[in-house]
Amino acid sequence: METIDFDRIAPSPETRVLDVGCGEGRHVHAAALETVAEVVGVDLDPANLAAARADYDEYVAGESDVPVTFCAGDALRLPFADGAFDVVCCTEVLEHLPDYESALDELRRVCAPGGTLAVSVPRAGPERICWALSDEYHEVEGGHVRIFDREELRAAIERRGFRRVDGHFAHALHVPYWWLKCLWWDRDQRDEAPLPLRAYDRFLEWDVMESPRPVRLLERALDPLVGKSVVYYFRLEGRA
């Protein structure tokens, strides 16, 4: 389930891709199936990196010749040289960081002139309902520390020399799941999730695995209205 649409980036065989806060590697795996030069995923959590590597070895390695690296690192202190990557992705990460502006500085630093920055954060409307339904949702360790105004985020990125070139919303069908999860947060944490939440979870798993066309078309129609994530694509001003 990718949030970033690589068709909107149009990478080339020379493109170097970095995914900051790669989690279990969904965008690393997707980028590795494109025609690119290399892909690097960085994350703070060793368990995430292990899962990302295991899934890559099982599902992607046999389908791709692209060099892929997973490494531990902090979004506030990325272990890479200035301008090392042509595409920098950062999805559903900034809302977890108290000092997200320093993270933006690092994303800017490692992005090559003329390169692309792809960023996503939770959309404010659906996110506010999650916060209203459950304090625990955003108070858990490592949880969300802010609700982004998307134009404020866009302005913060553009102050660093980027120009927005595209954008969209994503994952509308995941919004009801998170509302149900927040509504029954205490029960879900005790592995006592009620039937509606368990049933919707199974529906999403089926959708991810099977990708049925009618459901994909439904979500595409709903995304502009209630998409859970807002996704922006920026170009770093300057010659490539």
Rank of each mutant, 00 (worst) to 15 (best):
E2I: 09
F6Q: 05
D7R: 14
R8K: 12
R8I: 00
R8A: 10
R8P: 02
I9D: 01
A10D: 13
S12I: 00
S12V: 06
P13C: 06
R16Q: 12
V17A: 02
V17W: 01
G21F: 07
A30S: 13
L33A: 05
L33P: 03
E38L: 12
E38G: 07
V39S: 00
V39N: 02
L44N: 06
P46K: 03
P46V: 04
N48H: 14
Y56S: 00
E58I: 00
V60M: 02
G62C: 02
E63M: 11
D65S: 11
D65W: 02
P67F: 03
T69S: 15
F80K: 05
A81C: 10
D82K: 14
V87R: 04
C90Q: 05
T91L: 11
L94Q: 06
Y100M: 01
Y100Q: 01
Y100L: 07
E101K: 13
E101I: 08
E101H: 15
L104H: 03
D105P: 08
R108L: 11
R109M: 09
V110H: 06
V110P: 04
C111W: 00
C111T: 15
T116F: 13
A118E: 05
V121Q: 10
V121R: 10
R123Y: 13
P126N: 08
P126C: 09
P126F: 03
A132Y: 11
L133D: 04
E136D: 15
V140T: 14
V140I: 15
E141V: 12
V145E: 07
R146V: 06
R146Y: 11
D149S: 14
E152N: 00
R154M: 10
R159T: 03
R159M: 06
R160V: 03
R160G: 01
R160F: 01
F162W: 11
R164T: 09
G167S: 10
G167K: 02
H168F: 14
F169P: 03
L180M: 06
K181D: 09
C182Q: 04
W184L: 07
W184M: 06
R190E: 15
E192R: 15
E192V: 08
E192G: 05
L197H: 06
L197S: 05
L204Q: 11
L204M: 11
L204N: 10
W206G: 07
E210Q: 14
P212G: 03
V215L: 12
L217Y: 07
L217W: 14
L218R: 03
G227R: 01
Y232E: 13
Y233R: 04
F234K: 02
F234P: 06
L236I: 10
L236W: 00
G238A: 12
G238M: 00
R239S: 15
A240S: 13
